[in-house]
Design a protein around this nucleic acid. Structure first.
Lengths: 211, 211, 211, 211
DNA sequence: AATGAATGAGCTTTCATTCAT
DNA sequence: GATGAATGAAAGCTCATTCAT
């Protein structure tokens, strides 16, 4: 059955992680999967199809990362919840980052990856939506300022989560190192408080009614 | 002389932009540069050295992007200044993104790129520092809240700027499309205002004296 | 039983017709025959044996093409009979031409095909013989000139019939196009009349006593 | 210069002669030409281009085979001239037969070969024309019967010449064996005399005014 | 008898690199 | 400095064939 397929796909993905798309040869895949090169072509039309499948599997997995988050609206502190959101985003994107980066090496592959994300009810858009809804809910409870654009805030968090993952991959840092939590907390605090002075100092700053 | 070197390097970088590291062959480089393949090896020890040089040049260029920004502390609105900062970060990273992404394909190349950034007085760290200093200055003028961690805020902006660039590359979107400005404005506004409710509602929110 | 054998052989021959020996793979044969590749090896030792069998079958079929012709000695016109002979030769050779041509691609296959033709009481030799006998019979009736070498005439017709078939295959022309009949008629007429002038003009031509 | 090209082309053609298109691998070509496989691709875009070139060269060579024949109209015996024509056709076609046969293995190759023959002022059509003109000239001298269709006679000879070459290739017979001359003489004699009875016997045969 | 996963040799092709000129 | 023919290793892929089920 498709145990062999799975072995090949896993081996490929693993190589994608460690070598980068350019260096992944069918020979290496075969060796890593413990099969012959010919067998790869028995299960996949060509190398492209295999890579596509790897990308598809991983990309589809991004689906609704935040769906599993028990975001208790109105419960715990907002900061705690946002930190949890960011951490989840960060961790999941750390996982798919090699596959995601691989799609940069190939035009067609990238287009395909985009399609996959578009088709699925899931993917980044869905995560952003989930966050925006959460923020709006907190807004109704008065835990988030009324003038906040929940959608914009969600996109902000999304960008930050991905970027942290990408940088840690680039720096080849462990995703579980202690500093990450601290970094996320600092980030959340900044977003929570905002840059604008509060209270009396408000008069000082330049008006930005329409900004 | 090094006119030829330059031609070869430019051609290589251009191919990196359009094809990705995997697809860049010496033959294509030679053709694009209008020289023979053999000549490449008169100017560079091997292909790796050439690629390294391309990466080195572009990476070194990341240096002090914000140095060119006339960030007038205390002048114009803070929002306007932040928007300008973000836009500059976004644009410059959009330019180097292909080279940056290329470094993911090769372990050694990536390590080298990191070294380059570390060595130079310039690079991301410097931009972050510049932003942090700017924010701190505004803070002293009372245009930024006193409790803001200027360093954390700078890192936040940095992440957002890079991530916007990466996503637009991935989506193959034009970096000058009108929507970008709007996106940046929304983002700045959110960061400025923060998520926390202001005024009386402040009592409602959880204390975060030490958070 | 040998229903499967037959399916495989038919499929192979069909592919030989349309692709040429070089392009006929076991995979394609299996697909065309609606069986699995493995099954082919239950019925034939190897691919060579299968091809051999196809060639054998078709070659054996060449047998006695003219035997089916109701060549009525002394009846109808001689030209009509010759045209019919040529047409039959042409048509039958058009059918086997792909298999025949295939034998050029493989030394051993060709040798085998020759053996087959030799073994059978049938094959080209038999057709030539049949024609020679027919011509000799007409000769006795005075419908063919007494000085004609019936064997040589038969070989002549044989060559022409095959060559027409080969050329039409090479030109990828339909064997039933109207022009064929006209071509055959012209050919027969030339053979019938001969090139030598007749009657008084005979004196003019150079003597060919020994030619 | 193109000495290498020539070596490769020659080697390829030689292999085409001995193995058939199907069995000609780039590896063997390289070995036979005394070069590396890679070099083949330095001189030819791909294997197809190489084969095309071989076919083109040989096919173009068919050009005007009879042009070199000093066919002395009115001189020597007609039979001698026709025998010489047939022998020349036979010999030249014996040479190109392997390449010609190769074109059967590949649809595109065959189409290309046809184009080559069409384009050139030369090729079979030209030979046929030359023969037809020769026959017509003899006709005017009264050495060929007035009612002979010179074009049809030329086509007849053409077919016979090619077919003899093909059969000898198929039988793997030497093109210079003594029997060939005898075969050609018999053939010419038959064509010269025609099958129809001459003189008084002419009344016996069926009328063929319109045949 | 039939399947189809699995094999391994060999094919065409690419590509970084060298070297005589 | 510059050329481009030449190399050789390795890439992606095909295909006849085997074998456990």
């Amino acid at each position: 059955m498709n145990e062999t397929r799975q072995k090949i796909i896993s081996a490929t993905e693993h190589l994608l992680f460690s070598h980068g798309l350019a260096r992944v040869t069918t020979r290496e895949i075969a060796r890593a999967a413990g099969v012959t090169e010919g067998l790869i072509y028995h299960h996949f039309r060509d190398k492209a199809e295999l890579i596509h499948e790897v990308v598809e599997l991983r990309m589809a997995e991004v689906k609704n990362v935040l769906g599993s988050l028990p975001l208790q609206v109105g419960l715990r502190t907002l900061s705690e919840n946002l930190a949890q959101i960011l951490y989840t985003l960060y961790h999941s994107h750390y996982q798919i980052m090699p596959v995601f980066i691989s799609t940069f090496a190939d035009h067609e592959l990238r287009a395909r990856a985009r399609e996959i994300l578009d088709e699925r009810k899931g993917g980044p858009e869905w995560d952003i939506q989930a966050m925006a809804l959460y923020i709006a809910a907190e807004q109704r409870l008065g835990r988030v300022a009324a003038n906040v654009n929940s959608r914009a805030a969600a996109e902000l968090l999304h960008k930050i989560g991905i970027q942290m993952a990408m940088m840690d991959r680039w720096m080849e840092l462990d995703p579980d190192r202690a500093v990450v939590k601290k970094e996320i907390r600092d980030c959340v605090q900044t977003i929570m408080a905002g840059l604008e002075p509060r209270g009396e100092s408000r008069r000082v700053k330049t008006a930005r009614k329409q900004a």
